[in-house]
Design a binder for these strands. Structure first.
Length: 561
RNA sequence: GCGCCUGUAGCUCAGUUGGAUAGAGCAUCUGCCUUCUAAGCAGGUUGUCGGGAGUUCGAAUCUCUCCAGGCGCACCA
């Protein structure tokens, strides 16, 4: 645990003890200690940490908050907490000022822990799976997939940093109705390219990328499937195209910085009979009934709005049935927690999926679904309706070509999944130079430049002494920067608890800003050896933390810009 | 019609889960490069937190209601 975490925790504990002590002495009366916060106040003049404990106790204690604050402070043990001064302010806040000397330890702590600085033990090795993107292998990756990729990958990295054992997974929908439609579309393209009149069927895939796919295929096998039995022809085309699309998806995501631990085939669940077995299992438990020739899951028992079909009257299982089997498989693989990132257009699926999990005897809360709002593409000032079937969309690859991988990832990670992002490609192009990601990367490049220069002038980098580090405490800019660095492990813990990687993007922007301010106000490579070593230590520490955050966000840290 | 998400500065978005005087970037205006990278810094301007009511010491945050936008409500996925 980092020093700052220990300080905050100790003060929290001592506050609780103070309340108990006052209660024992008959100075305060309350049943259970209400939940209270100890946090850094927005205004610097309010000190380093502030608590609302006195105010939240008013109801039970039946005394004015400022009086309660007095009593708490009288009973508070401040030994080893670095508390130097306190005051009661406003309606009853207790503000603490810490002895700034503690900040001198931050640099040493970061340099000692290196790339592990920020790692917290929140997860305790718990096994977590993050499933994200899982785009249909019937086309290219679009903007929504890009958002999911950036979000899912950084969330997974964040959880790793927080002490979870994380597995990244991609679910390949290579079975079912849509694959049949896909086959018919491929066949139409094949025939078209060989000069026949063959329309894309209703509900088929109109994307132009299929033309390229089929051209590639024709280059290999020519027209020999022209005279084949349609069933066999379709089967061949689908196998070829799925393989090609999937390879393309895999490569594109890899280029985007995303690598999966597991690629899971839906088809394998059908082939092994697991879908059927799972339906039988649920039927045995009485959660399935027949109506109009189809099998229905009583998902309304678990809060769904209506029951859902799992096996159609023609005997084929629905997507939902396969998904139930898939999630059962996930839990049987031993994950304590399963996180899915879905587009908001799937939110109607959440309740029934959780219901199915419960019906199978698993804890529905172990399945957490992050819904992200859709990405709206703006072109020529108008919303473009994106759809894989219509073939109208901007691809992830185009996005990377236009604005770059780092800018694209950062753009998505910066935003709360709940916000509907409007993506104006023309604007993104023109603004790519002032994408906030460069602000952060520029800070990193500057840090590297200072260190290069230090080495060129033959300053040996060494660990500054405690006395030297205290020299950093003389300026506000350095103290602010140290404070932000010290806060990093807590940011990790908070972001991981809330499953909100966008907090880290905000954090790293703040950190870069504090560094730029420091850079402009204090010179690092000064004559004085002690001060120079101390500032170089701060520079190295800042560089390390930037590195650690950018690694989580999947953004590169350039040594020069 | 019902359910979920959203509404904060001219634009794009944060807001530590109910805290003190609501923040940042872009835009705009004024300064700062003979010293470690000006893709930077310092400062100015910018608000009925969609409207209304309520809950309490205290509300952008919680409740209700209304308005606006997005998404969903298939034997599609």
């Amino acid at each position: 645990m980092s020093l700052y975490e220990r300080i905050v925790e100790m003060i929290e504990r001592n506050l609780a003890h103070a309340a108990e002590r006052a209660k024992a002495a008959g100075e305060l009366s309350f049943e259970g200690l209400p939940s209270y916060v100890l946090e850094e106040p927005r205004e610097r003049q309010h000190g380093d940490l502030a608590t609302n404990l006195a105010m939240v106790l008013t109801k039970q204690a039946k005394r004015p908050p400022r009086e309660i604050a007095d009593i708490l402070l009288k009973n508070l043990d401040t030994k080893e907490t670095w508390i130097e001064d306190w005051s009661i302010a406003g309606p009853g806040f207790i503000n603490f000022r810490l002895n700034p000397d503690w900040l001198a330890n931050v640099v040493t702590e970061i340099l000692r822990e290196g790339e592990d600085y920020g790692r917290v033990q929140l997860g305790q090795g718990e096994k977590v799976q993050v499933e994200f993107v899982s785009a249909n292998p019937t086309g290219l990756l679009h903007m929504g997939n890009a958002r999911g990729a950036a979000l899912g990958d950084s969330l997974a990295s964040l959880l790793e940093m927080a002490g979870y054992e994380v597995s990244r997974e991609f679910y390949i929908n290579d079975a079912g109705n849509q694959i049949h439609n896909f086959a018919l579309s491929l066949e139409a393209r094949y025939l078209q390219l060989l000069g026949q009149d063959a329309p894309i069927p209703e509900g088929g895939y109109h994307g132009e990328d299929l033309i390229d796919t089929i051209k590639g295929l024709i280059a290999q096998v020519g027209d020999k499937y022209l005279t084949q039995e349609p069933i066999l022809r379709q089967e061949f085309l689908v196998r070829y195209a799925l393989d090609e699309k999937l390879r393309h998806i895999r490569e594109t995501l890899k280029e985007f910085g995303v690598e999966y631990d597991v690629w899971f085939n839906e088809q394998s669940l059908h082939d092994s009979g697991f879908v059927r077995a799972t339906m039988e299992e649920m039927e045995k438990k009485g959660y399935i009934y027949e109506k109009e020739g189809a099998l229905w899951l009583k998902s309304t028992l678990f809060g769904d709005e209506k029951d859902e079909v799992v096996v159609r009257s023609n005997g084929t299982p629905t997507y939902f049935a396969a998904d139930i089997a898939y999630h059962r498989n996930k839990f049987e693989r031993g994950f304590n927690r399963v996180i899915n990132i879905w587009g908001a257009d799937h939110h109607g699926h959440v309740a029934r999926m959780k219901g199915a999990i419960e019906a199978l005897g698993f804890n529905p809360d172990a399945l957490q679904i992050i819904l992200m709002q859709l990405v709206r593409l703006i072109q020529n000032g108008e919303v473009v309706r994106m759809s894989k079937r219509s073939g109208q969309y901007i691809t992830l690859r185009e996005l990377m070509d236009e604005v770059g991988r780092d800018a694209a990832r950062f753009f998505f990670i910066l935003r709360d999944p709940d916000s509907t992002v409007e993506f104006d490609l023309d604007l993104a192009r023109s603004q790519s130079a002032d994408n906030p990601v460069y602000y952060v990367q520029y800070a990193y490049a500057r840090l590297c430049s200072i260190l290069r220069q230090a080495q060129e002038t033959q300053t040996n980098l060494r660990l500054p002494t405690g006395a030297e580090l205290k020299l950093l405490l003389n300026s506000q800019e350095e103290r602010d920067l140290l404070k932000k660095l010290a806060d990093f492990p807590r940011e990790i813990a908070l972001a991981a608890r809330l499953l909100e990687p966008h907090r880290l993007a905000r954090y790293v922007l703040d950190l870069a800003s504090l560094f730029h301010t420091f850079y402009n106000s204090q010179r690092v490579l000064v004559e004085d050896e002690g001060l120079r070593q101390a500032r170089l230590g701060l520079v190295r520490g800042t560089k390390q933390v930037l590195n650690n955050v950018l690694r989580i966000l999947g953004v590169t840290a350039p040594e020069r810009m």
